[in-house]
Simulated assay, not measured.
Amino acid sequence: MATKEMNNRSAYHEYFIEDKWTAGIVLLGTEVKSIREGKVSFNDSFCLLHKNELWVRGLYIAEYSLGTSNNHIAVHDRKLLLKKRELKKIENRMKDKGYTIVPLRVFFNDKHLAKVEIGIGRGKKLYDKRETLKKKDTERDIKRFLK
């Protein structure tokens, strides 16, 4: 069965992503089935550190279509699993002003475990966003011209 990889494209538009980590995520059974169907939305999702634990907030995973009364809640805080050493690095980076932790993609690894790629990003200004769009347009035009 081919599984989909869900990317958070708006994170790359809104932030300069400087560091990336891959974290496990604590999920319920019906959440895993919904992710396999590709029913994930990153709108307004972000990560936060609370009591030396990393949580993802606002990640929408649609209810499983074949779920029973034991179906999961679509939006709730989900714990991310990282090593203490990685959490300390993230905590030290977050002390700098203007940085935030955003989920970049949800995927299944080789062992069929659900993983979340998170990144530490610095917010872009409006002129930075315009510059990024111009670069993408010119690269697209060059590729089109070379074909």
Rank of each mutant, 00 (worst) to 15 (best):
Met1Phe: 13
His50Tyr: 10
Trp55Leu: 15
Ile142Asn: 02
Ile35Arg: 01
Ala11Asn: 02
Asn71Met: 09
Arg93Thr: 08
Thr22Val: 15
Ile61Gln: 02
Lys33Met: 11
Lys51Trp: 04
Gly24Ala: 04
Glu63Gln: 13
Tyr12His: 10
Ala2Cys: 07
Ala11Cys: 03
Ser41His: 09
Met94Arg: 03
Arg85His: 09
Gly58Val: 06
Val40Arg: 01
Arg36His: 06
Lys89Val: 11
Ile35Cys: 04
Asp77Tyr: 07
Lys147Val: 12
Phe46Lys: 11
Tyr15Leu: 14
Tyr60Leu: 09
Ile118Leu: 05
Ile17His: 00
Val116Thr: 02
Leu82His: 05
Leu113Gly: 05
Phe16His: 04
Leu146Cys: 07
Lys51Ser: 12
Ile17Phe: 01
Leu54Trp: 05
Lys129Cys: 06
Glu86Val: 14
Leu87Val: 07
Gly24Met: 04
Gly121Glu: 03
Ile25Val: 10
Lys111Asn: 10
Lys20Asn: 09
Val102His: 00
Ile35Lys: 01
Ile25His: 00
Leu113Trp: 07
Glu139Thr: 07
Ser65Leu: 15
Leu126Ile: 13
Arg85Tyr: 05
Asn70Tyr: 10
Arg122Gly: 01
Trp55Gln: 04
Asn71Glu: 13
Glu37Gln: 11
Leu27Tyr: 02
Tyr127Asp: 07
Thr132Ala: 13
Glu14Gly: 03
Arg93Ala: 14
Ser34Arg: 03
Pro103Thr: 05
Phe145Arg: 07
Arg144Ile: 08
Tyr60Val: 10
Glu53Trp: 00
Arg144Ala: 13
Ala2Trp: 05
Arg122Ile: 08
Arg140Phe: 12
Cys47Thr: 05
Glu5Val: 15
Leu113Arg: 12
Lys95Ile: 13
Val32Ile: 15
Glu37Trp: 00
Lys115Gln: 12
Lys134Thr: 11
Asn8Phe: 06
Asn71Ile: 14
Glu63Phe: 00
Glu131Pro: 03
Lys95Phe: 09
Phe108Glu: 02
Lys124Met: 14
Phe42Ala: 08
Leu87Glu: 01
Val26Cys: 10
Glu139Asn: 11
Phe107Glu: 01
Thr100Trp: 06
Lys88Leu: 12
Ile73Ser: 03
Lys134Ile: 12
Arg93Trp: 06
Asp137Leu: 15
